[in-house]
């Protein structure tokens, strides 16, 4: 059973706010979904499936052949919510005061 407190905690972890008015509805729906997907926790799965290595793996590339400096700067800074020249403006999070 999901509780309102759990959903609130998950929301905080996910950097999302669920309004109080929505919380109960969300929790109820969550419960139904968890009950459905919970069928997997009861299943006996064959050993091979638990040992199989993932098919996807991270692929690294060598550094090299960089693009021309500044080639994409204008396009990217256009998307910034706020910028000073080419720099992205963010809130100060460390204060020296």
């Amino acid at each position: 059973m999901a509780t309102v407190a759990e959903v609130k905690k998950l929301a905080a972890l996910a950097r999302i706010k669920v309004e109080d008015a929505e919380l109960e509805q969300f929790t109820k729906e969550f419960d139904a979904i968890l009950a459905y997907i919970g069928q997997l926790t009861q299943l006996k799965l064959p050993q091979h499936s638990l040992e199989e290595k993932p098919l996807l793996r991270n692929v690294m590339r060598n550094d090299g052949e960089p693009h021309t400096p500044g080639a994409y700067t204008a396009k990217l800074t256009e998307q910034f919510p706020a910028c000073e020249e080419d720099a992205l403006v963010v809130k100060q999070i460390i204060s020296h005061g």
């Binding site: 997997l40 926790t41 299943l43 799965l45 064959p46 091979h48 499936s49 199989e52 993932p54």
Partner: peptide, 13 residues
């Protein structure tokens, strides 16, 4: 373990 890893195992099955 209860959810994600079992779901991943289910893909292999």
């Amino acid at each position: 373990d209860a959810y994600y890893h079992r779901a991943d195992a289910m893909r292999a099955v």
